[in-house]
């Protein structure tokens, strides 16, 4: 009987080991989208860069707004004409600085996309109910360029001018 008991224990432990191995293999399969070099090199790295750029842009915007507010607080209202002009200038600065909300919003959507992919995979790992969706094909949609990697307005103007020139020549 003691021999039978040991055999049962060995069988049960073996089956548990097999279950654990299968779970590890399944987990590795489910993690494949996140382990894919393209996800780590592009999506995840881009998300980190976008987040960093967004923080930098928010800092710059806040600095610009604070500078404008400080300038306004120093205006001498004895000369009402000059004061009105300077207040209008500061208000313009504040309005322009608020552009950051759109840019950082687009950057954070890239971060959300990467987090969603991780969340989908974790959900699938935990209960197997959700399939990680493949990323959507966003033809021509890049979002804001990272600092130093996008085109400046002058370069855009050159392309447009060059194209207009060509069209005029053809016309």
């Amino acid at each position: 009987m003691a021999g039978k008991g040991k055999l049962d224990l060995v069988e049960r432990l073996t089956n548990e080991c097999i279950d654990v191995c299968q779970a590890v293999l399944r987990g590795r399969k489910y993690l494949a989208p996140l382990l894919d070099p393209s996800f780590r090199a592009h999506k995840l790295q881009r998300a980190l860069n976008e987040q960093k750029a967004a923080v930098g842009e928010m800092e710059m915007a806040v600095d610009r707004i604070m500078t404008a507010v400080e300038k306004m607080s120093e205006i001498d209202f004895a000369d009402s004409g000059d004061a009105a002009r300077r207040v209008a200038e500061c208000c313009g600065e504040i309005v322009e600085a608020c552009c950051f909300q759109d840019i950082t919003g687009q950057r954070m959507s890239q971060v959300n996309e990467a987090l969603s992919a991780i969340e989908d995979t974790l959900t699938f790992l935990s209960d197997g109910t959700a399939e990680a969706a493949p990323p959507e094909d966003q033809t021509l949609l890049n979002g804001p360029a990272l600092p130093g990697s996008g085109m400046e307005q002058d370069a855009v103007d050159e392309i447009l001018a060059d194209d207009k020139g060509k069209q005029e020549a053809l016309g």
Partner: peptide, 20 residues
């Protein structure tokens, strides 16, 4: 905020008058 060359060229080809 789309500032890649391909965006600007595509918009120009589609008939945009200016691009900011």
């Amino acid at each position: 905020a789309e500032s890649k060359v391909e965006n600007v060229i595509a918009a120009r080809k589609a008939g945009v008058n200016n691009y900011i």
